[in-house]
Computed example of a mutant assay.
Amino acid sequence: MSASSRYKFQRVTPADFGRLAAWQSRPHVRAWWDAAEPFSAQKLQDLRVSRWIVSIAERPFAYLQDYTVHGWDNHHFSALPKGSRGIDQFIGEPDMIGKGHGPAFIAQRLQDLFTAGAPVVATDPHPENARAISAYEKAGFTVFGPVQETPWGPILPMQASP
């Protein structure tokens, strides 16, 4: 298996809700991810967002979502070019943190999105989430503006291009 395809992205289904809820309850996820918004079958029907379970060697360990940045009125990334995507993720399994998986699977998904035609992919980590910011930088993202307040809290805007 090549390094560029070592991670598997499988669409989230209702069968994954228990795993996702368990991951969201872990302190390292809860610190940065809103567990008050559980996953639901209704959310899976929202075509603006693609939701993925990330696995390596048949072991699920992370969640990633990518979305159209133009799917919401006044989204903080709405000035990006048409076709741009946003991305959010977390590693749910604590023993998989700090081993380079985050930057690697993010970079792999970036390439998938660029191959599909996305001109820009943006992300918006909390400005105090140094681990996420570092992972995004290693995957190819750069900061493209000052810290902003959004309906989801403070964010550091970052973007990557092919």
Rank of each mutant, 00 (worst) to 15 (best):
P81F: 09
Q24G: 09
A62F: 07
P81L: 02
D66K: 09
A107M: 08
F61T: 01
F39W: 15
R131N: 03
R109S: 00
E58A: 15
H70F: 11
K99P: 06
N74T: 13
S50A: 14
A122C: 14
Q42S: 12
S55E: 14
H28I: 09
P38H: 06
D88I: 03
I133L: 00
F114R: 01
W72T: 14
W32F: 14
E58P: 06
G86A: 07
D16Y: 08
G117P: 11
I91S: 07
L110W: 00
G86I: 07
R19C: 09
I133E: 02
D16L: 08
E93D: 15
S84Q: 02
I56S: 06
V120R: 06
H101F: 15
I56V: 15
F90Y: 14
K82R: 11
L64Y: 02
T115C: 02
L113V: 01
A62E: 07
H28N: 04
Q65P: 04
R30G: 12
L113P: 01
S84T: 05
A31M: 10
F61V: 02
T68Y: 13
H126Q: 06
Y63R: 05
A118Y: 02
D95K: 13
P125V: 02
A107E: 02
F105H: 09
P119Y: 05
A118D: 03
G100S: 11
A118M: 04
A118F: 03
K99N: 10
S55V: 05
I53K: 03
E93A: 11
F39Q: 08
I56K: 01
H126D: 12
D34N: 14
Q89K: 04
A36F: 02
Y63H: 13
I53F: 05
D112K: 12
P27D: 13
D34W: 08
Q89E: 11
E93K: 07
S25Q: 11
V49G: 00
A35P: 00
H75S: 15
G92W: 05
P81E: 01
V121H: 10
V69G: 08
A130L: 05
Q45G: 14
L80H: 12
I56Y: 03
S84V: 02
F105P: 03
S84M: 04
V54T: 11
G102K: 01
S25T: 03
A130G: 04
G98A: 03
A118T: 04
A118I: 07
F77C: 12
Q45Y: 00
L113W: 02
G86T: 06
D46E: 13
H101R: 05
Y67C: 10
V29Q: 12
T123P: 07
L113M: 10
S25Y: 01
M96I: 02
W72L: 15
H76P: 10
S50V: 09
V54C: 04
P103K: 07
A116F: 03
A116H: 00
I133Q: 05
P27K: 15
G100A: 08
F114P: 08
A15W: 04
I53Q: 07
G117Q: 03
D34T: 00
G71L: 07
F105G: 04
A35S: 13
S50D: 13
L20P: 02
A35L: 10
A116G: 06
D66C: 06
V49A: 10
K43L: 12
